[in-house]
């Protein structure tokens, strides 16, 4: 183990000094571990290939720019870079593979549709239209503040300037608008959750 660590450190140092074959040795030595690690997360050969390439591009740039300072911990450092790139990949795609523990492989555990399905879409529309009707019932002043805040995304400062009242009054109207909405929702037993 110690021998391996020293060798990596020497190879890194040789590479920084300009020995290109040291990089080749480092890649050959660790490629399987790094590639398998990435593949175990993304389960896709092409994506694994891309992430593996990006990982080493980052490694090469860091080493060449002299920013590497973890001598003796080359592999964990590369693994960390690969891990971060895997996370970036999932963030970009906005999905994480989920595996149920039943032992059976289900394609739906890997494939997911982030958009709402027809039923959920209808429920969402229904909720939004119910809410709009409830807002219509509010006193004019409260309704104006709530619409400006929630639908137009205005700050209370902007609302107070537009309506010509103080910020505190605008805040108060918002508070009463929410209290009144809750009251109506509770009284009429309206369910506004998906």
């Amino acid at each position: 183990m110690k021998h391996e660590l020293i060798t990596d450190a020497v190879l890194v140092s040789n590479y920084i000094k300009g020995d290109e074959s040291a990089l080749s040795e480092l890649i050959t030595k660790h490629k399987q571990k790094i590639y398998s690690f990435i593949y175990s997360k993304v389960y896709d050969r092409d994506i694994t290939e891309d992430i593996f390439q990006d990982t080493f591009i980052k490694v090469i740039r860091t080493l060449r720019l002299g920013k590497y300072n973890e001598e003796g911990k080359f592999l964990p450092w590369v693994m960390r870079i690969a891990h971060n790139l895997v996370i970036d990949h999932f963030r970009k795609n906005n999905r994480m593979p989920k595996f149920s523990n039943t032992g059976e492989f289900s394609i739906f555990s890997v494939l997911s549709d982030s958009s709402l399905d027809a039923e959920k879409g209808m429920i969402k529309e229904q909720i939004e239209s119910d809410l709009r009707r409830l807002i219509e019932e509010l006193p004019e002043e409260q309704k104006a503040v709530l619409v400006m805040r929630m639908y137009n995304d205005m700050s209370f400062k902007e609302i107070s300037e537009k309506t010509g009242v103080s910020i505190n009054t605008a805040l108060g109207r918002m508070r009463y608008a929410l209290i009144n909405l809750r009251k109506v929702i509770e009284e009429k037993n309206i369910i506004l959750t998906n």
């Binding site: 290109e20 890649i27 590639y35 694994t48 591009i57 090469i60």
Partner: peptide
């Protein structure tokens, strides 16, 4: 589980 040769060559 190994990267393609082209990938390694590209990196080098």
């Amino acid at each position: 589980l190994n990267p393609k040769e082209e990938t390694v060559n590209f990196l080098l």
